[in-house]
Design a protein around this nucleic acid. Structure first.
Lengths: 243, 243
DNA sequence: CTTAGGCACTTGACCTATCAAGCGGGCTTT
DNA sequence: AAAGCCCGCTTGATAGGTCAAGTGCCTAAG
């Protein structure tokens, strides 16, 4: 006897209908079988069918119109081309997974933008952990993590060794906070001499700079990352629906 | 007698619970009243209560845990700080709403990146409509619209006059296509002399360049926009959940 | 003091049922 | 030919109900 659990009936129906859509049984633009037809075919109740259809609508596979029926849209394109957001990888991946060296660690006076993003007074002291990441042996980007001092206490962030947990996991395990979302600002500027040297880049190539403000559900900034990306080696990607 | 329609009961419950959460009646972290308690208080059925609670969970206001209860998260922060995505405004707003002058209109050989983004062969002819937008009387950005030739036929895009419809509305009204989502690429580079002159910017300030590939639900590129943004005057913003 | 079982609570899943409202086609009337 | 009405279909909303599964607390036994 198989130990694997049987998914709920509504979930099985979702999968069946998705397979039929992708197989061309219900091509985009066509009318899906009505609720009554699905009830007959699958021998399940109307609320169960409706739950499955609601899920398909919410995921973008179908549209419904009262009095008319439910129309097939097809597999939502975004789910096939979904991109990791730039901040996401730095928040969740352990430092051990990306080769690099620690450049700076410790309490520093916050640059103005960082203080604003953290919701702190100008010239506040904050904790900084800055690393130079490499890709295929070449310098790739500089990542700085800025934290309010209280949030950095009791963590391993002062270590020169790479963290074996993602930043989020590391902090959530030690502090009573929960990361919820990221607000990003993307700017471009010319590198300083020191940055150009560190990144092994020409002085006349700009930097893409991502400021990622990591926030809890209430919108409070728990940490800020900034990432310096030589523009000749990096581009950012994003995808979103048109509303 | 008021002619306004009464929203469904589940929607009224959603609003009531949202108001109570924001008023502090149910602070974040606290347990929401159980289904039974809500059924008693509001005198409505369990499926109606459950529909309201499911909606709150999907919008991020609450979390549920079987056997335990439903916990308050609070107003989802992203809905309070939602930003228009850069491509969105160009897709939906009429050109008449943003002052500018038409710089180039007509069939041109597609630059390589544009051909790739449109899914065309290298050196294909495409339609280009390029405008210099102003903000408070100053040059602000250059927006180029690139379309396959067949999609531009029968449109007003060849006009030197600004469109009174958004691009999306204009094309969807004339062609059998439906814009669904955008894939964006963000890069930084130095401006050419001509671009710097047109934008009234110094030569040593970089450009943020957004390539927005406007796609249908099947992922086919219908149009590409590129937007040149002097980096000393522009930054891009984004927000996303941490998964 | 620890462990296990039972109970009461919770949400998850599924069922049967009714009525409201929208849509489209066919038929009748003007 | 056009307009209106009716009917049969569709989905939207609501109700009442049962059983499964998860959680936490309390009590009893070891």
């Amino acid at each position: 006897m198989s130990l694997e659990s049987v998914p709920p009936k509504y979930a099985q129906l979702v999968q069946t209908l998705q397979r039929r859509i992708e197989a061309g049984t219900y091509p985009p633009g066509s009318l899906l079988p009505s609720e009554n037809q699905l009830i007959q075919e699958f021998g399940i109740s109307r609320p169960t069918v409706v739950a499955a259809l609601r899920m398909l609508r919410e995921q973008g596979w179908i549209d419904s119109q009262q009095g008319k029926g439910r129309f097939v849209r097809g597999r939502p394109a975004m789910s096939t081309v979904e991109q990791p957001r730039s901040g996401q990888a730095y928040v969740s991946s352990p430092e051990t997974s990306s080769p690099g060296e620690v450049l700076d660690v410790g309490a520093v006076t916050a640059p103005n933008r960082i203080a604003v993003l953290l919701g702190l007074k100008p010239k506040s002291k904050v904790f900084l952990r800055r690393r130079l990441l490499s890709h295929e042996g070449e310098p790739s980007e500089i990542v700085s993590i800025w934290l309010p001092l209280d949030l950095s206490e009791g963590t391993d962030l002062t270590s020169a060794e790479p963290l074996s947990q993602g930043l989020r996991e590391h902090i959530e395990a030690r502090k009573s906070v929960h990361f919820d979302h990221v607000l990003e600002q993307i700017v471009a500027r010319m590198p300083t001499s020191a940055e150009a040297t560190r990144l092994g880049m020409p002085k006349n190539v700009p930097l893409l700079v991502v400021f990622a403000s990591l926030r809890d559900a209430a919108g409070r900034a728990l940490a800020v990352l900034d990432v310096l990306l030589p523009a000749d080696r990096h581009e950012l990607e994003d995808a979103y629906p048109i509303s």
